[in-house]
């Protein structure tokens, strides 16, 4: 009977920090289906799986990336809620459509969706894609827009794509921007596609649009953090810029946790804590979300964050920026 109760009872959400229990929201999670990942990225992902998972990656990936799988990952780390991203990147990581994301988030009151759009054939189909994005954003749980210029191959400074930022602003949907070069095959690693300084014109032109700079400009290819100054510079200069520290503090990118701790230290010393929104870029592999949350908490502790400051990063700013209701 006790076993039954233990197995069926709701997990205790929140993490302990400096004697306080804090809510955690992961603003960067992926969902999808194996068949919609490009062949090159399928091989890349498979090569990163421990044996024997790489022999049958499809079942593992689809189980981990389902709404149920992601909730399991949130539970492991005591995370309250998570945002699932639509992705339209056929040249690299593949496609996870708005419709698929909506089908996942409708299964749980702990999951929200971040919409996206295809920029392939933009000259001929841009209007149609904008219309589809606008429609997706009318869903009450689709609360933001995700763009990854390096994965989607479009320049950050090309005005042809500025209507995306305008549309997002009109819908009060913050735009998540992947910054910095990515290790995935098929990405465009040249400066206009990875460096948010190229986005500055759009940032100024659409002050009502909120831009979240994902990965904080970290260079995943050369494993260098000096490019992060670009993101800090923009966050300090513009009210509509936010920072998201996903992935670069993982065990593989930052084994000792030094890069993450340095980032949190810089953010605190330069009064940017209110600009930070926690995300993991999970689920990646079972246990990653919980582990990444723990690593961020360690980094904040090393950087001397108070419990209030940690809660700002872990959930407070996300609740305000995305206008989330309190979770029961």
């Amino acid at each position: 009977m006790i076993l039954f109760w233990l197995a069926c009872s709701a997990p205790e959400l929140g993490i302990m920090y400096d004697g306080a229990r804090l809510d955690v929201i992961d603003m960067h999670l992926h969902t999808g289906e194996w068949g919609d990942i490009g062949e090159g990225s399928q091989r890349y992902l498979t090569s990163r799986f421990p044996f024997p998972f790489g022999l049958t990656p499809e079942s593992l990936v689809e189980d981990t990336l389902s709404a149920q799988g992601i909730q399991r990952e949130l539970d492991k780390g005591g995370l309250e809620r998570g945002f699932l991203y639509s992705v339209y990147a056929p040249r690299s990581v593949g496609v996870s459509t708005n419709e698929f994301v909506i089908s996942q988030i409708e299964q749980s009151d702990r999951l929200y969706g971040i919409a996206s759009l295809s920029v392939e054939e933009w000259e001929n189909q841009g209007e149609e894609q904008l219309s589809a994005l606008n429609e997706a954003l009318q869903h009450p749980k689709m609360i933001g827009v995700k763009l990854a210029h390096t994965h989607q191959h479009f320049r950050m400074d090309d005005p042809r794509y500025y209507p995306i930022y305008e549309l997002a602003g009109n819908n009060q949907a913050p735009v998540y921007i992947h910054t910095g070069p990515s290790p995935f095959p098929g990405t465009n690693p040249t400066e206009p596609y990875i460096n948010p300084l190229y986005l500055e014109e759009a940032i100024e032109m659409f002050p009502q649009t909120q831009f979240v700079l994902g990965h904080m400009c970290y260079d995943f290819i050369n494993r260098k953090s000096d490019t992060m100054e670009r993101c800090y510079e923009l966050a300090a200069r513009y009210d509509n810029i936010w920072l998201e520290p996903s992935a670069f503090g993982s065990r593989s990118s930052d084994p000792e946790g030094e890069v993450l701790a340095e980032a949190y230290t810089y953010v605190k010393e330069n009064n940017l804590i209110d600009k930070m929104i926690f995300g993991s870029d999970g689920p990646q592999s079972p246990g990653f979300v919980a582990d990444y949350t723990e690593r961020n908490i360690d980094a904040m502790s090393r950087a001397g964050y108070t419990a209030d400051e940690a809660e700002r990063v872990l959930s407070g700013t996300a609740k305000e920026l995305y206008n989330l209701p309190e979770y029961p």
Partner: peptide
């Protein structure tokens, strides 16, 4: 042109 359906894209 490269690939089909959802993964189709130009100028690869």
């Amino acid at each position: 042109w490269y690939d089909t359906d959802l993964l189709a894209h130009p100028a690869a």
